[in-house]
Structures are given as structure tokens and as C-alpha cells.
Design a binder for these strands. Sequence first.
DNA 1: AGCGATGTTGACGCGCTGTCAACATTTCGC
DNA 2: GCGAAATGTTGACAGCGCGTCAACATCGCT
Lengths: 220, 220
Amino acid sequence: MTSTPLADPKDRSDSLPGNQAGKREQTKLANRAAILEAGRQIFAELGYESTTVRDIIRRTQLASGTFYNYFKSKEEVFHALHDDGVARFKPLLRAARESAGTDFQAFMITAFGAYFNFLLSDGQIEREMAATPEWTRVRFDTPESLALFDELKGDIIAFATEFKLDHLDPELLTAACVGIAQEIGERLLRGRIKDVDAAARFAAYFVLGGSQRAQSELQT
Amino acid sequence: MTSTPLADPKDRSDSLPGNQAGKREQTKLANRAAILEAGRQIFAELGYESTTVRDIIRRTQLASGTFYNYFKSKEEVFHALHDDGVARFKPLLRAARESAGTDFQAFMITAFGAYFNFLLSDGQIEREMAATPEWTRVRFDTPESLALFDELKGDIIAFATEFKLDHLDPELLTAACVGIAQEIGERLLRGRIKDVDAAARFAAYFVLGGSQRAQSELQT
DNA sequence: AGCGATGTTGACGCGCTGTCAACATTTCGC
DNA sequence: GCGAAATGTTGACAGCGCGTCAACATCGCT
């Protein structure tokens, strides 16, 4: 990086109304957005495995080489889209925590419900499964989603402390919650399970009862 | 080029009296086995995504075209290996059911324990994860594994009936068990969780308590 | 031995990948 | 404004994996 010390390099935005950034900056944003949008569509149409970088770039006005100015591979596009989803879901989880206060049960019901509804309505990438052969799945754990898991783990630890579930490994507890959410969520997406609210309540009570039972049995 | 014939042509093993199957049949078996074994190795070394059909066939003595006489794609090889694993695990699950009799708790502990130990010792393909970047997973639901799920679902239904858990959707219950097993199993494989037996007991008690709680709360 | 059946071989055409030199546009000092 | 440098775009290209297929080798049977 050449650190151009002469004059402020990027201060072209001199309080001009409407003129937000340099043209270069604008098209960069636009191109990136175009690639992401094209990727979203193609992944939903062809599934992750079958789509190629060419498929994505062909849906835009850009040349093939340009793709690599923005992403290293289709995987990176998928990651970006996935992280987008995580970012959209995060506030929902936080809302669940805040509205629940210290009520573990309320938290669980709201959180599972939020996740399942999110999958069905907003989970743009997750729909990719619909185009994917029944038997294949690709799943990514981006730093972004790991951060979400950690946040969830924090919540779970807080409640576990509150309810004196002190014999439970938070790692195991979080894993169980995530696994349940994943597996039921997938069946909801595939239409193998229909009733979203019932599923959320089931999952929530399952976790509650499971935690208590594990706690009492694992006293040592 | 190495004009190495596959099985040396001069091997007139027909002198052996106990030679039952035709030579054709034998080499077919041998070739298939060679491809599968090569696939097992390569998948473990490179991970599913990065390995190519060429990588697999290159590790054998066969020509590239021959691969397609046995499998349509690397995916099909992976499926076969996966089904192999399922077939090896199935008896363990059955043993768990039989040794447990009508004891739901014993069944769950044994079953989870069997699965986790299987993953760590025998789960040949699942090791593929070790070579896979931290954040990518590919998972397959072959007919074979779906059959296993169904068998498990049958067991769960039986116990649910026995214990009058009649308000629980078996689909949800099975999904929860599978999700827990998957997620904890993965953490075991990645070394994020260490104690296998503790994990099995946790999972078992979690399912027991979860089922009961969900049953009593979902009375309507 | 001889002949059809069956399996193997590797070269081929195709499409995708990632790169790069040539080109176009923007930015900035003057 | 103007010209040069910085920055971004383009599409052609070499490399490689894919799946096919005609030629070939081997087997099984009479």
C-alpha cells in the first residue's frame, strides 16, 4: 500500500450534497453487489455444488476476470451471503434474549421460533437446498456463524448459571441446541415438518427438560 | 508409459482347484475394491471437495476410463463408502436395542456411546473432516442412512409408546436425537469435546428429560 | 482353437479455472 | 482544464478435470 501522504487522498466528499463518494468507489460497490445478487440467484437455482464462477459472472454485465477482483472463489461468495444471513438473524436472537429477561423457557421458545421462521422466510441461501439433490448438503461455519454460536453459548451459560445447571458442559449444551435447531430446521425447509410453532415449542421444552435431567443425573 | 497390465495376464491361477468365480468376476471385484480403497485414502487426505476422480484413479493401476465402469462420479464413491460405514454401524445400534430391552435410558446411553465411539474409531470417511478446512462440511443422506434413521425412528416410537409419550411427533423426536448426535459427534471428531462417555451420558439424559418435558408441556 | 461377449485403455473435445497484458476510466497534482 | 499515474476492467489463454468412445485386450464358451 502506497501511503500517499500528499493531501488527503480520499476527501473528495467535500460536503457536496448528493455526491457521496468517488465514482470508482461507487462502481466497486455496485459490482460487488451485482456479483452477490447473481450468486444468490444462481445458488438458489442450481445448488451450491453445481454452480460455477462462470454461471455467476455470466448473470452480470461483468467480464470473467473481474470476478476475481472481488472474490477468490464461489465459496467466498457463498460465505459472504451466509454471513449476511447471520447478520440479519443476530438481532432476532438478541431480541429474544431481551424480551425473555430471565425466563429461560421464554427465551428458548422465542429463539427457536425466530430461527425457524427466519429459515422459512428470510433464509435466502438456505433455500439453496431446494435446488440441491435430496441427499447432499454443504454447510459452512464462517467466523461470523461461529460468533453467533458463541453468543448463543453466552446466553446459555447465563441461564445455566441462573438455574444452577452447574454440572453441564456449556459446549455440550450449545451443541445440543444447535443440532436440534439444524436438524428440525432442515426438515421444515424440506417440508417434512409443517407446523413451525409446534416445532419451536417442542424444541424449547426439549432443551429445558433435557438440561434439567442431564444436570440431575450427572451430579457426581 | 507403463504398459503394466492390471492383473498379470500370465497368472494362470486356474491350476488352483478351489478357484470358484470366473476371472472376470474376480477382477471386477478387485477393481471396485481398489477404487473404493483409493477413494477412502484420497478423501481422507484431501477432503471431499478437493479430490477429483483423477486423484482417485491415479492411485490405482487403472485407466481413467475404467473408473466410469464402476462409478458415475466421486460422489458415488463417497456414497458407497458412506453406506459401508452405515452398514458397519447398524449392528451396533441393533445390539444396543437388544441389550437394553425396554429400558429407554439404557438404550440411549448405549446407542449414543456406540455412535460416538464408532465415529472416533471406525468412522473412516468421517475422518475426511480432518483434512477439510475448518469451515466446510459436506453431508450426504443416502438411502442407506435414511434407512438407518427410519430404524432409529422405529425404536424411538416403540419406546415412546411404552412410556406413553403420545403427544410427541416421532419425526421431531428423531430429528432432535439425530441433530444432537451429529453436532456432538462433530465436536468430538474435531477434538473440541474430549470425554466420549460423558458426552454419551449427557446426550442420553438430555433426550430422556427432553422427551418427558415436551410430552407434559405439549398436552393439549 | 476360434469367436462373440465383456472389460480396459487413453486420447479427445468440452467447459471451467485463475492469470495477465492490453486497454479504459478515474483521480490528482499542477 | 490537462496530462500522467493510479486504479479497475476485459477477454484471451494455458492448464486441468470431466465423461465419452473407438480401438484393443482378455475371457468364457463351444
